[in-house]
């Protein structure tokens, strides 16, 4: 049953690849598939029961699937030696700025919206 659920998710993904390729949709197939599954679940076309266990397993081990790809960094030894420090500062710095702006802005705006709703009601 559990394997069947993962098979169903794989089928959904492969279908998304086909749709995204043929319709030239400019978003990754995996993100497109995520939206499709969300719509199917919301419309009740796929019952949560059919995907929940398999999805929980894949979500828990999502990090695993990135590891073999990240190992590809080993091919960049030369660049790391010459520009490694500058690149780390660039990636860390811009990530910290983006993280702070996104989270702080969302946090402040959410509180403001909540406050306004309270005033109106």
């Amino acid at each position: 049953m559990f394997v069947g659920q993962i098979f169903l998710l794989t089928l959904l993904y492969q279908l998304s690849v086909v749709i995204v390729t043929f319709l030239h949709i400019p978003i990754p197939a995996s993100v497109f598939g995520m939206i499709v599954l969300l719509v199917l679940l919301s419309k009740g076309l796929i019952h949560m029961h059919y995907v929940e266990k398999g999805a929980a397993f894949l979500n828990k081990h999502l990090a695993f699937f990135f590891i073999p790809i990240a190992v590809g960094l080993m091919a960049y030894g030369g660049l790391i030696k010459t520009d490694g420090l500058a690149l780390i500062v660039m990636i860390a710095g811009s990530s910290i700025i983006g993280l702070f702006v996104t989270a702080a802005l969302t946090d402040r705006l959410s509180k403001k919206v909540k406050g306004q709703r309270r005033e109106h009601s």
Binding site: Q14, V17, M34, H61, P68
Partner: peptide, 15 residues
């Protein structure tokens, strides 16, 4: 090993 990365991303629709 990355064969299931796509399906695992699709599975994020559940949470």
């Amino acid at each position: 090993m990355t064969f299931l990365l796509g399906p695992a991303t699709v599975a994020l629709a559940v949470p």
